[in-house]
Every structure is written in C-alpha cells, then in structure tokens.
C-alpha cells in the first residue's frame, strides 16, 4: 500500500497538468464562495449571509464543492487515461505490479484527492462560518457537520465512476466527453421510468448526496409563521423543492454503486490486454 502510494505520488505530483488543475480547482472554489459572499439581494428580508452561517454553511459549501467534483473527476480521468496512452500500465505490469495493483493505486489516488477536497471544504467552512456567524455555540457549529463526510463519499463516487469510464474507453478525450455526456443521457433515461424509480440511478444517487440547500428558506431573514404553524417558510410543502430519498438510503446506494464501479473496472482491466 505504501509502495503504491509513493508510486502515485511520483506520477501525479510531478505531472505539471495535475498540479495546475489542482491549483485551479482550489482557486475556483474559493473564488466562488468569496464572490457569493459579497452578493447582496435587493429583496427586503433576504440575505445570502444565512448560507455562510453555522449550521447552514455545512450544507452550502459541500453543495458548491460538489460541482467541482466533476472537475476533479476529469483530472482523475486524465491521470488514468495517460496510463493507457503512454502504455505505462503495461510497463508497470511488466516491471512487477499486478493488474489489481494498478486499480489499487488509482483507488489510493482517488482517496487522496477526496481527502484533499474534504480538507479544503472543511477549512473553508470553519473560516467562513466563524466570520459570518454572529452568535454561536459548539452545538450550532457542529450541527449538520456530518454533511461534509457525505460530500467526501460523493467525491469518491464521482471519481470511481470516472475511473470506470477511463478503464472502458482508455482514451482521455473520449472518456471525458462520454463522462460529461452521461449526465444528460442518464437524465433522459430517467424520464422513461416511473418517478419512484428515478432516484435510484447512479448519478442521481451520487449527486443527491449533496442536495441543493433550501436557499429561499435559508436566505429568508424573516421569521414567518404560516397557516400550519411552522416558524419558517417550508418550500417542500409548497411543492417548490423536490423530494429525494432519505440520506441513509442514498448513502447506502452510493456505497453500492462505488463498489460496483470498482469491481467492474477491476474485471475489465484483468480481462483485457494492456
């Protein structure tokens, strides 16, 4: 395991494109959260600051970062696709790695990238949360903090799907294009299924791990009591927000899909010639 980690370290950290893309990822994320924090609604009673306050920030930042998971997946596909283009997977096997080691190495890479993005979001949450929350206690700070772990699982989910695409198509450009095309394709396929089945598709499951925050509810500064007696606006009841599977089921399904992607990539890499 240590050996595979050190191999991936040499392969990735000495790759200028990888370093550049990771820096872009880091800067883009912070740019987006900084720019959004400066937005002021002209609608009385609404403010984006609510999104940056504990505990809402645990929901908002992973959701923003989830968009950049697609970017990280493209980086991952590039690294795996390069192994096929340069025929270095072949050379690694000739030199003494097994084909399972090749997959293990890439899983270590995925895990490492996921840890990096997890830490990036965690640090951002703590910095912005402390700046924007006026009054807080430990309870408020850590309420909903589990969502960042869910985000970590999502990062792994997207990247293992990317790994599968790279192993199937063995070509950077083709794998990236087809990975991106898969998003609308799965969306169209879902339309052919009854609504109760739509939430079980792989991308739907993975993307639902970080659901869109209830922006309108969070951004509302007014305490509003509706007819049913709730103290804030409930947009789900109003039919504005979609209903998704409970988080526990979504997580279990995502773990299942991640296992499936890894197993399929392993079988394909073992069965096909390098």
């Amino acid at each position: 395991m240590k050996k595979l980690l050190s191999l991936e370290k040499i392969k990735a950290l000495s790759y200028p494109t990888f370093k550049t893309l990771m820096i872009i990822h880091f800067l883009l994320f912070f740019l987006v959260v900084l720019v959004v924090s400066r937005i002021h609604f002209s609608i009385p009673g609404f403010s984006v600051k609510g999104l940056y306050q504990f505990p809402n920030i645990w929901e908002f930042f992973p959701w923003v970062a989830s968009w950049f998971n697609i970017f990280l997946t493209i980086v991952l596909i590039t690294l795996v696709g390069n192994e096929f283009s340069f025929k270095t997977f072949r050379q690694n096997v000739i030199d003494g790695l097994s084909r399972n080691d090749l997959i293990k190495g890439k899983l270590i890479l995925i895990f490492t990238i996921a840890v990096y993005t997890f830490l990036m979001v965690l640090i951002a949450v703590l910095i912005f949360g402390i700046i924007f929350t006026k009054e807080f206690s430990m309870n408020i700070i850590f309420e909903n903090s589990y969502l960042i772990l869910v985000y970590f699982v999502q990062a792994i989910g997207y990247m293992t799907l990317g790994l599968l695409f790279a192993v199937i198509f063995r070509n950077n450009a083709l794998s990236i294009i087809l990975f991106l095309v898969y998003f609308p394709v799965e969306g169209i396929i879902r339309l052919f299924f009854k609504s109760e089945y739509r939430a079980y598709f792989p991308l739907k499951i993975i993307s639902n791990l970080t659901p869109k925050p209830e922006f309108l509810t969070i951004a509302s500064e007014q305490s509003y009591t509706n007819a049913s007696g709730n103290s804030s606006l409930d947009f789900s009841e109003m039919g504005i927000l979609p209903e998704d599977l409970p988080l526990g089921i979504t997580l279990a399904m995502a773990a299942g899909y991640i296992g499936f992607f890894i197993a399929l990539a392993t079988v394909l890499l073992n069965r096909r010639s390098l």
Partner: peptide
Amino acid sequence: RRRIGSLIETPNFYPYLTLWENLQIVAKIK
C-alpha cells in the same frame, strides 16, 4: 516478474517525468 527485466516494442515511460523519476518508479516496483 521482478526477476525479469523486459523491454517490449516501444519504450513506455511517463514523458513528463525525468529519467531519474521514471527509473525511480521502476525501482520501487521491483
């Protein structure tokens, strides 16, 4: 595999790595 040194068809190395780094990978594997 580690008792065998092989060269098959074309040289297959990471073009963006130096010769030292490429051989470091080979040495670690073996």
